[in-house]
């Protein structure tokens, strides 16, 4: 049900763009105004969210330690999994952000023939997650040739590499295939594995369908419903140079594509997609694990009520003396000031 709602929502968005940009001819709205607003919402929303996180205090150093801590010189420290220095933290974050280290940890241990232990891995999630994220990045970068003139060499090169299979005309992008495969893997595991279905929310399906929508409209535009590339480039260059134009002859499919991307940008800052920013700020990963060595300061540390030794001795003095335990004040006197203190 949750998936179907989300799917319908994406269809509704497509329909909206078809009617708006196609039937009603509001090309300026869909080609210029909405994209501008979307980028604005994305940038401002993203920044506000990150600033919001940044404003929250980090009272304690709660690093998850996944390796041997810094100890004696004769014990080998795991500098990446339990960093004691800033460089270690940078290394740890690099592996986490760029290689999805924690997802990779998913090893499964099996016993074969009753004796031999084998460590197989169940890394499909890691594999498809990393494929998805990197191809997404490649696709975003590849699109830069629409926003630059002349197109800088790295983008040209990327474009060539992506199309190196040399199949069809225009040539097939490898990234188109990979991202579709990865997206469908991520979608299917949510739909088919009962536990995944149970934990999934509409807000898990919606971005998946939305991105699938973006990818499919993109592919349709490139391979099947040919659009006027030059006109599109004119539009996109107009956008980045702040001289927006809506040239004739751009198919409605382009406006659908652009509208879905705009929705994605609007949706990004208020959704789970913010994990892109949040991963850098996660206190269990981006801090050192050497809290006993370097003191961490809590900005809102406040005094608390404690039970003092004096109050304790007052209560038990008689028994302590009887048992031969040393006391500060002799039996007769009751210490002043023995109340619990702040």
């Amino acid at each position: 049900m949750k998936a179907i709602y989300s799917l319908f929502l994406v269809f509704a968005l497509i329909l909206l763009a078809m009617i708006g940009a196609g039937t009603l001819g509001m090309e300026y709205l869909f080609g210029v105004i909405i994209p501008y607003l979307a980028v604005l919402a994305f940038v401002v929303g993203f920044m506000l969210k990150v600033i919001g996180w940044g404003k929250s205090a980090v009272p304690f150093r709660i690093t998850s330690t996944c390796g041997q801590a810094k100890s004696f010189p004769w014990i080998k420290e795991n500098k990446l999994e339990n960093p004691s220095s800033t460089w270690g933290v940078i290394g740890r974050m690099f592996f986490e952000v760029f290689l999805f280290r924690s997802l990779f940890r998913n090893t499964k241990v099996e016993i074969h023939d009753g004796q031999r232990i084998a460590y197989s891995s169940s890394k499909w999630l890691w594999l498809f997650a990393i494929l998805f994220h990197y191809t997404f990045l490649v696709i975003v970068l590849r699109h830069m040739r629409f926003f630059t003139e002349p197109v800088p060499y790295p983008f040209v090169l990327l474009d060539r590499l992506d199309g190196m299979l040399q199949i069809g005309a225009p040539v097939l992008y490898i990234s188109s295939l990979i991202i579709l495969a990865a997206l469908f893997y991520l979608l299917l595991r949510r739909l088919l594995i009962p536990s995944m279905r149970y934990i999934s929310l509409p807000s898990d399906y919606f971005p998946l369908f939305l991105i699938i929508g973006v990818v499919i409209t993109g592919i349709l535009m490139r391979y099947f419903l040919k659009t006027d590339i030059m006109a599109i480039k004119e539009l996109s260059m107009g956008l980045v140079t702040f001289r927006p134009v809506t040239p004739e002859g751009i198919g409605v499919i382009f406006f659908i594509h652009l509208f879905l991307v705009s929705v994605l940008l609007f949706y990004f800052p208020i959704s789970k997609l913010m994990h892109m920013g949040g991963v850098f700020l996660s206190p269990t990963r981006n801090m050192t694990g050497n809290t006993r060595m370097v003191r961490h300061v809590n900005p809102w540390n406040y005094p608390v009520k404690v039970h003092t030794y004096d109050a304790y001795e007052d209560e038990f003095r008689e028994k302590m003396v009887e048992a031969g335990l040393p006391v500060v004040k002799p039996l007769e006197e009751k210490s002043e000031n023995a109340e619990n203190k702040e």
Partner: peptide
């Protein structure tokens, strides 16, 4: 607690 805020926001399930 930044930890709490982030953990409330970024889980992708």
């Amino acid at each position: 607690y930044r930890s709490f805020k982030i953990f409330m926001d970024i889980c992708v399930r």
